[in-house]
């Protein structure tokens, strides 16, 4: 466990010291500012409330889970694998007394922490923006629901990240992994629209599953099924990704 902790600390430190994480934070924040500006514009221009303070974070979430969040997750996941494959940097870690399984898990955990941090950051700032600019419908229940929606969005994002990790272990170049990820993302999104009855099989559909948690009458079975599908995806992708990583020669 101590070895895993060391590996995880290392991965987190690398993530933190790189400019990418910083850029991700800045872009996330500018999304919120931009969103709030649009809302204020809509409100004065059309007289439509747009959103109340409770809904602004959900609006932000609904946009980011399909845009910047998968984008940053992809960038970080690709950087963590392809980026280190390309300059033999993987050897720095791999020649230390740490098993490949622990390295792989530590990388995945670090990516998870990044996703979580990004979500929490968006949550805090969108709540703040919500309170500052739309303070007419605040309630504790609404707040709790918002937090829940952000937290459950972590899971599909993690499955997505595992998919990208698998791709990064299949293809050499980080750029091709990036574009393939985007391509897959768009294809699954489109398939989800055209085959809506099978939509729940695509990872991209699960990105919106926080909606289920917001329902008045809690669709428990549906949530359980989605959870199991995501768990199945997660286990498959993690195992496949690790299998390739373990076999890789550096």
């Amino acid at each position: 466990m101590a070895v895993f902790q060391a590996a995880l600390l290392n991965e987190v430190e690398k993530l933190y010291k790189k400019k990418k994480a910083f850029v991700a934070i800045i872009l996330s924040l500018s999304m919120i500012v931009l969103g709030q500006l649009i809302i204020v514009g809509v409100r004065t221009g059309f007289g439509v409330r747009g959103v109340g303070s409770a809904e602004f974070p959900i609006l932000v979430l609904s946009v980011v889970v399909n845009t910047i969040l998968p984008l940053f997750t992809a960038l970080v996941a690709i950087d963590s694998f392809s980026g280190e494959f390309s300059h033999n940097m993987m050897r720095i870690t791999l020649t230390r007394p740490v098993s490949r399984f622990k390295v792989f898990s530590a990388k995945v955990t670090a990516i998870s922490l990044f996703i979580l941090a990004n979500l929490l950051l968006l949550l805090v700032f969108s709540e703040l923006a919500g309170f500052l600019f739309n303070a007419n419908s605040a309630s504790f229940g609404g707040f709790a629901r918002t937090v829940l929606a952000y937290l459950v969005s972590f899971l599909p994002m993690l499955v997505l990240a595992l998919g990208i990790v698998l791709l990064a272990n299949i293809f050499k170049s980080g750029i091709s992994v990036f574009f393939l990820s985007i391509l897959f993302f768009l294809v699954f999104k489109v398939l989800g629209v055209f085959f809506s009855s099978y939509a729940s099989l695509f990872i991209t559909t699960h990105l919106d599953w926080y909606n289920l948690w917001l329902a008045h009458s809690f669709p428990g079975w549906k949530i359980l099924r989605q959870l199991l599908i995501m768990a199945g995806y997660g286990i498959m992708l993690f195992t496949a990704g690790f299998y390739l990583f373990d076999k890789k020669e550096f």
């Binding site: 070895v3 590996a7 290392n10 430190e13 870690t93 740490v98």
Partner: peptide, 11 residues
């Protein structure tokens, strides 16, 4: 920091 990365594996 590079050394720190390595150091974490050795108590």
């Amino acid at each position: 920091d590079n050394l720190k990365q390595a150091a974490r594996y050795y108590p």
